[in-house]
C-alpha cells in the first residue's frame, strides 16, 4: 500500500484536487489519489457520476477546471483510450484491417510501411475474434463487432496505460470473457488498466481495486472493501442534478504542487451541502495491490 503522499510514482496517474466539468459545473469534484502503475482498477458509479469525464481528463481531452492530473513519465502515446462512444465515422470507406492498423501509429507513423506489421494486426484481430474480417468495410460491422475492432486497435497500441470506457457494452457474453482475458493479460504484463464498468459482479470477480465515484470520490481501494452496500447506497444518494444556480464552490483553490505533502483532501465542505461532501472514512486512497 502506498499513501497518497507518495505522489511521484513514475508511470502512475496522480490526481491532485482534480475538478473536471463542463461550463464550470463539476462532473468530477476535488478528486485526490493515485492510480499506481501496473494496477487494474475499475471505476464504478451511477450515471452522471463523472466516470467518462475522469477518463477524458486523464487523456487530456478536457482540461481540468481546477487541480491537475500528473502523468509522470508518461508521454501522450503511452496512454491508450477506448472511448464509450467512439467518434468513428462508419460511413467512411475503409476496411477493418486499416481501422485496426491505426493502432500501430506510434511505430509506423505517417510513412513507414505496414507490411512488416501485418501478422501483428492479424493476431490482434484473431484475439478479438474478427479473423476473416480484414477486408470488410467498417460500415458493415455490427455495433459489437466494431467495438471488438476498436479493442483490437487498443491491443496494437501497446500502451503502458489503457483506459477503457464501458468496454463490454453491446458485447455478447462469450466475447466479453475473451476480452476480459485480454485485460488480465495486460495486467500480467504490468500495464496499468482503468476501466469504467457497470456490472458489479464482473468488477468483483476481475478487478482487484475499485474507485466508486459519484462526482466526489465515495470510496477507493480494494474492491471488496469499496463495493459495500453502505458505499453503494451513498453513491446512489449523491444527486446527478445539474443545478443551474449552484453556488460557487467554496473549497480553497487546490494549488497543483503545494498540497503534495498534505494528507487530506484540500476541501472544506460548504455548510449547505454537507451530505454531498460526506467523505469516506478513508481519505487516503489505497492502491497498488498486486493481483
Amino acid at each position: 500500500m502506498t499513501a497518497s503522499r507518495d505522489l511521484s510514482v513514475p508511470g502512475g496517474l496522480t490526481f491532485r484536487g482534480l475538478t473536471l466539468g463542463y461550463a464550470r459545473h463539476p462532473a468530477v469534484h476535488h478528486l485526490d489519489g493515485t492510480i499506481a502503475p501496473g494496477s487494474l482498477t475499475a471505476v464504478v458509479g451511477p450515471n452522471g457520476a463523472g466516470k467518462s469525464t475522469l477518463l477524458k481528463g486523464i487523456m487530456g481531452e478536457i482540461r481540468p477546471l481546477e487541480g491537475e492530473v500528473s502523468r509522470s513519465g508518461l508521454a501522450r502515446q503511452d496512454i491508450a483510450y477506448l472511448p464509450q462512444a467512439a467518434e468513428v465515422d462508419r460511413s467512411f470507406p475503409i476496411g477493418v484491417f486499416d481501422l485496426v492498423a491505426m493502432g500501430l501509429w506510434r511505430r509506423v507513423g505517417p510513412w513507414r510501411s505496414l507490411k512488416a506489421h501485418r501478422p501483428a494486426v492479424e493476431a490482434a484481430l484473431a484475439a478479438v475474434g474478427l479473423t476473416g474480417f480484414e477486408r470488410r468495410p467498417i460500415g458493415t460491422l455490427s455495433g459489437g463487432q466494431l467495438r471488438r475492432a476498436l479493442f483490437a486497435r487498443v491491443l496494437l497500441q501497446d500502451a503502458r496505460v489503457i483506459l477503457l470506457d464501458e468496454p463490454f457494452a453491446a458485447i455478447d457474453a462469450r466475447t466479453t470473457d475473451e476480452l476480459l482475458g485480454l485485460v488480465h493479460g495486460w495486467h500480467a504484463e504490468g500495464r496499468t488498466v482503468v476501466a469504467v464498468l457497470h456490472d458489479l459482479d464482473q468488477v468483483a470477480r476481475h478487478f482487484p481495486s475499485t474507485l466508486l465515484l459519484a462526482r466526489e470520490k465515495v470510496a477507493w481501494g480494494a474492491t471488496p472493501e469499496v463495493l459495500t452496500a453502505d458505499n453503494l447506497r451513498r453513491a446512489r444518494r449523491l444527486c446527478e442534478a445539474w443545478d443551474e444556480d449552484a453556488p460557487v464552490c467554496r473549497a480553497p483553490v487546490a494549488h497543483p504542487h503545494d498540497e503534495a505533502g498534505h494528507g487530506h483532501a484540500p476541501h472544506a465542505p460548504a455548510p449547505q451541502d454537507h451530505s454531498i461532501h460526506d467523505h469516506s472514512t478513508r481519505d487516503h486512497p489505497t492502491h497498488g495491490h498486486a493481483a
Binding site: 487523456m59 467512439a86 467518434e87 475503409i94 486499416d98 467498417i138
Partner: peptide, 16 residues
Amino acid sequence: VMECVDPLFLRSVGRA
C-alpha cells in the same frame, strides 16, 4: 484518413 475516420483517436495518439 485517420483524421477523417476517427479524429478523437488521432488526437489521442499524437499531435498530428
